[in-house]
Design a protein around this nucleic acid. Sequence first.
DNA 1: TGTGTTCATGAGAATCATTCTCGCATGACT
DNA 2: AGTCATGCGAGAATGATTCTCATGAACACA
Lengths: 136, 136
Amino acid sequence: MTRPEPTEAPRRQTRQRSAVLALLEQLDGFRTAQDLHALLRERGEAVGLATVYRALQALVDDGLVDVLRGDGEAAYRRCSPVHHHHLVCRSCGRTVEVADPPVERWAARVAAEHGFADVQHQLEVFGTCAACTTAR
Amino acid sequence: MTRPEPTEAPRRQTRQRSAVLALLEQLDGFRTAQDLHALLRERGEAVGLATVYRALQALVDDGLVDVLRGDGEAAYRRCSPVHHHHLVCRSCGRTVEVADPPVERWAARVAAEHGFADVQHQLEVFGTCAACTTAR
DNA sequence: TGTGTTCATGAGAATCATTCTCGCATGACT
DNA sequence: AGTCATGCGAGAATGATTCTCATGAACACA
């Protein structure tokens, strides 16, 4: 009811897509597509930039990766498939996944009060992590 | 301690900036810079696109306008200067400002638990408003 | 109210991330 | 192995935003 998925596209497994996912698995924090592309090249994995974008989109569609839109460029991160939010260090990018049932309920209630239906919400928390705070 | 504002730039009042702000006052919902530019031209207000961007940035810096980054393009809206969040209709763009003390506390607590300092958060709720729901 | 200094404007070029095009390569399935 | 749709790569195209720089307008002060 929330996700009809009419044209269930058969996803094909290729070296490039595996490489992108594998790289994301090792990283901890949000990275831009361009960053990921550069990292792959450094490691000798020859992957085109357009392909990185396509792979990331596919992963996002499959719910394996989350997107964060900072100023101008989008950042991606391997995430758990259950609904959650992020606590992101604005200095080093380290990220913690956090759940918050109260916010879910609050969003639904406020939306209902104003007559809004089919509600979604996005919540991100930014701060400076302990390591970065002491390091300065 | 939260806003040092070291180089308090003297903001100059010009016809163009007033026009942008005046237009935003009349509109209800988030609009892109390009939209605003087009609207101004329709109304006979000759304003350059670059100037619209500059004016919007200034307004955002002054806390008079809020930004929303959808896919690719940023949207702007005249908002109250107190901290709040938005309930946005994804169909017609109509927007309601909502406050939520519990979320504020929750964000602060979760951040503290993970050792994060200097915390900020962004929360937006999207849905379909009553008018758009019945109109379909 | 004149006048100079300084900041703002505008047209178009430049930048930058992202997407598209299209010919070729390669998975998946028989 | 053979077929064939799907994915890939390089570079062009797109589209939003920012920059450049010569000109114009605000503001402070005499």
